[in-house]
């Protein structure tokens, strides 16, 4: 070490949980359990290589080993978030490495099934693409060199939180589409933010209508109606909120608040802005959720 040891430790070692658990054997030797664990891990390694990498090359088996280490570690971290590494070793001995791997793998499946983006296309629901995304996510999170620091569990938590938020947006948009006053909208492509923007903008007119899809002609009628009747925006939004089920409220209220502050369409309706300009602004919010035809 020499001079190096004079420096403060800036890097905290965070090896994969599986490595840390196995190191506990040094203090708590148990030959039979160690052999059994080695057998199980080897078996998992072989199955991962067969399914995800390449079980006919040394490189494929090496990659599968890293995925095995990461996925078992992810499962252990999830099952025992606040316990020490000896507890993790106990779980491996009592329940088996396959059990820990299964926990981790189910987490990956759950994460990859969540929407990554509020723009949902037909590829996002295609099973072939879904399987590929699952594999990519498995590699993204679980690739772990057993002797190097690994932050897969932390990255998993961040991504999971982000995707849960996106999922809430997509679900609200889905509800709005199904309850569109003019009849349910079915379209493989979904611009969830666009749907929500339309519903919030049109809600200011009042009357409790749900607008999830519309066109230029309807928008022109809406603008004329708002300019003539000068409705209370807040009352209209309250009617919309009352219609939407409570589990979607956090997203809806957050978006209403945002559009209340910044939505240029709502701000400019009150003035003398040209219809053409207003519609162009609406397109910025609603995008592909506007019907192309003038009807």
């Amino acid at each position: 070490m020499g001079a190096g040891s004079m420096l403060p430790a800036l890097v905290v070692e965070s090896l994969p949980r599986l490595t840390r658990a196995i190191k506990q054997f040094a203090k708590h030797p148990d030959d039979d359990a160690a052999y059994a664990l080695a057998d199980e891990l080897t078996g998992i390694n072989a199955m991962v290589a067969e399914k995800f990498t390449n079980d006919r090359t040394a490189d494929g088996i090496q990659k599968a080993l890293q995925l095995t280490v990461g996925c078992v570690s992810l499962g252990l971290d999830h099952a025992l978030p606040d316990e020490d590494d000896l507890a993790a070793l106990d779980l491996l001995i009592d329940e088996g490495a396959e059990h820990a791997f299964q926990i981790g793998f189910r987490m990956i499946k759950e994460l990859s099934a969540l929407p990554e983006d509020a723009l949902v296309g037909e590829y996002d629901t295609d099973p072939v693409y879904a399987a590929r995304r699952m594999r990519d996510k498995f590699i993204d999170i679980c690739q772990a060199d057993p002797n190097q620091n690994w932050d897969g569990t932390a990255r998993y938590a961040v991504q999971f939180k982000q995707r849960k938020e996106v999922q809430a947006v997509v679900r609200l948009a889905g509800w709005l589409r199904r309850h569109n006053t003019e009849g349910p909208v079915s379209d493989a492509d979904l611009n969830a933010e666009g749907v929500i923007a339309l519903a919030i903008i049109f809600a200011v007119e009042g009357g409790g209508r749900v607008v999830a899809r519309t066109g230029q002609k309807e928008f022109e009628r809406f603008v004329k109606s708002v300019r003539k009747n000068k409705p209370d925006y807040e009352a209209g939004w309250a009617e919309l909120v009352a219609k939407v089920p409570v589990q979607h409220h956090p997203v809806l209220l957050e978006r209403i608040d945002s559009y209340r502050q910044t939505c240029t369409v709502l701000q400019n309706i009150k003035g003398r802005t040209a219809m053409k300009t207003l519609f162009a602004e609406l397109e910025n919010y609603a995008g592909s959720e506007l019907d192309a035809d003038y009807s």
Partner: peptide
């Protein structure tokens, strides 16, 4: 193998 646990195979 001393363990009585059976592998779940590809059920992992």
């Amino acid at each position: 193998a001393k363990t009585s646990r059976r592998s779940v195979g590809t059920n992992i």
